[in-house]
Amino acid sequence: MIDETKVTRNYQITIPASIRKRLGLRVGDTLIVRLEGERIILEPKRRSITEIRIRLGKKIDWRYVEETIREEIEKE
């Protein structure tokens, strides 16, 4: 996915809506910024399971989520 954004006079950028939606970014989320050669890489800071549980509340069957994670780890 490729999109454009401008740097403001305060050196801020706006992350395009299509990218925010795809990554599930929300106001207040933290991004990690790193430099690779001449490229600026932005990536969401990974959340802990506890933070995710608090954010989503009771909308999720956590036993299923934890079981799925264990299965994926065992595949590696």
Score class of each variant (00 low, 15 high):
residue 1 M to Y: 06
residue 1 M to L: 04
residue 1 M to N: 01
residue 2 I to N: 06
residue 3 D to T: 13
residue 3 D to K: 11
residue 5 T to E: 12
residue 6 K to P: 03
residue 7 V to P: 00
residue 9 R to N: 15
residue 10 N to A: 08
residue 10 N to D: 10
residue 11 Y to N: 06
residue 11 Y to Q: 10
residue 11 Y to I: 06
residue 12 Q to D: 13
residue 13 I to K: 05
residue 13 I to A: 06
residue 14 T to A: 09
residue 17 A to R: 14
residue 17 A to T: 14
residue 18 S to E: 10
residue 18 S to H: 06
residue 18 S to T: 12
residue 19 I to P: 00
residue 19 I to V: 11
residue 19 I to Y: 01
residue 20 R to A: 09
residue 20 R to G: 07
residue 21 K to V: 01
residue 21 K to D: 11
residue 21 K to E: 11
residue 21 K to T: 13
residue 23 L to T: 00
residue 23 L to D: 00
residue 23 L to C: 04
residue 24 G to L: 10
residue 25 L to I: 03
residue 26 R to N: 07
residue 26 R to I: 02
residue 27 V to M: 07
residue 29 D to N: 06
residue 31 L to S: 03
residue 33 V to D: 05
residue 35 L to W: 13
residue 36 E to D: 10
residue 39 R to D: 15
residue 40 I to G: 04
residue 40 I to D: 03
residue 40 I to W: 11
residue 41 I to R: 00
residue 41 I to T: 03
residue 42 L to H: 05
residue 42 L to V: 14
residue 42 L to C: 12
residue 43 E to V: 12
residue 44 P to Q: 00
residue 44 P to H: 03
residue 45 K to M: 13
residue 45 K to A: 12
residue 45 K to S: 02
residue 46 R to C: 02
residue 47 R to W: 03
residue 48 S to A: 13
residue 48 S to K: 12
residue 49 I to T: 10
residue 49 I to W: 05
residue 49 I to C: 05
residue 50 T to V: 13
residue 50 T to G: 13
residue 51 E to M: 10
residue 52 I to P: 02
residue 52 I to R: 02
residue 54 I to A: 11
residue 54 I to M: 08
residue 55 R to C: 05
residue 56 L to Y: 14
residue 56 L to K: 05
residue 56 L to Q: 07
residue 56 L to M: 10
residue 58 K to A: 12
residue 58 K to D: 14
residue 59 K to Q: 11
residue 59 K to N: 12
residue 59 K to R: 14
residue 60 I to A: 09
residue 60 I to V: 13
residue 60 I to M: 08
residue 61 D to R: 13
residue 61 D to M: 08
residue 62 W to D: 04
residue 62 W to P: 11
residue 62 W to A: 03
residue 63 R to W: 14
residue 64 Y to H: 01
residue 64 Y to L: 04
residue 64 Y to C: 00
residue 65 V to K: 00
residue 66 E to F: 14
residue 67 E to L: 06
residue 67 E to R: 04
residue 68 T to H: 10
residue 68 T to C: 08
residue 68 T to P: 08
residue 69 I to M: 05
residue 70 R to E: 11
residue 70 R to C: 05
residue 70 R to F: 04
residue 71 E to A: 11
residue 72 E to N: 07
residue 72 E to T: 06
residue 74 E to R: 08
residue 74 E to S: 09
residue 75 K to Y: 07
residue 75 K to I: 07
residue 75 K to N: 09
